[in-house]
Amino acid sequence: MGVTNLSKHTVVVAESQTLFRDMITNFVEDMDEFSVIGKLTNGQEVIEFIEEKEIRPYLCLLDIHMPVMDGLACAKKLKTEYPDMKVVLLSAYDDEESIETVLSVCADGYILKSSGLKEFKDILRFITEGKFVAPQKLVQYFSKRLDALLQIERESSLHFIKEHFADRTDLNKREWQIIQLLKKGWTNRMIAEELSISEGTVKNYLSLVYKKLDIKNRVELLQMLSKMTG
């Protein structure tokens, strides 16, 4: 293997379609800061290339949809074994299912094949600066999911629950804990394991809670909790 210009970031491109593979390679090679050291057709070839050549590329550009081993499986393996390696996924799709899967493999970026040349190059440069780059739709989707998770967490906080119970003073610390875990959707067994008590003890506490709140059962308690919104 020839000597690689050490001043450039080494790149491996994996794309099953020859035309796209050559186009992507040309785009990358056209940038002064990058040098393509491997053009491959699937994820398995990427893994074998790295292992056999004993070379660790700075960046791997992986098409999501490839035979043998797709880009997602390859990205997951690479980020597990080489967490510092930059991994960017290429796809023609920006649907919610694809977005969720991309987030799950901890890729450093996500580029749509419909991107313009300038956008493509800008994304690669941003990634070298340590930024995660993704299409606007992905960022918006992630933001909405994060907001929803934060809302759930906030509404499951003891402070929030106590506020909506008018800061009742007749409930003790353990009873508040159990109410909080019920609000999160936990079962009696899960609550017992979390608090290191028996399921029977959880049931006894719940019976006391029902009596204090003047309700009959778990269903009514859950209905009370479900009405709490911020």
Rank of each mutant, 00 (worst) to 15 (best):
L59C: 12
L182H: 01
L62W: 07
L124W: 04
E81W: 01
I123F: 04
E15L: 07
E81H: 07
T18P: 01
D214V: 05
K86F: 06
K211N: 14
E175I: 07
I152D: 03
Q17A: 11
S91A: 10
E51I: 11
A75S: 09
G109V: 05
V3Y: 09
D214R: 12
K173L: 12
I161T: 03
T80Q: 13
E29D: 12
E51G: 02
S157R: 10
N5M: 09
R56T: 15
H65Y: 08
L78I: 13
L103Q: 07
K8V: 05
D214I: 04
S207M: 13
Y141V: 04
F34R: 02
L62V: 05
V3L: 12
S196F: 15
I24R: 00
G71V: 01
K86E: 06
V219M: 09
L138Y: 13
K86Y: 11
K184S: 14
L59M: 15
F126E: 12
K121V: 04
R218F: 11
R56L: 13
I152E: 03
S16D: 15
C74M: 05
V46L: 00
E52S: 11
R145E: 14
K227G: 14
S98C: 12
I47R: 02
I111V: 13
V219N: 08
L103V: 08
S7R: 01
L138D: 03
M66A: 08
E45I: 09
G43V: 03
L182K: 08
K137A: 13
D70W: 07
H9K: 14
A166D: 15
L124C: 10
M228D: 04
K118Y: 09
E175M: 10
V12P: 02
D70E: 13
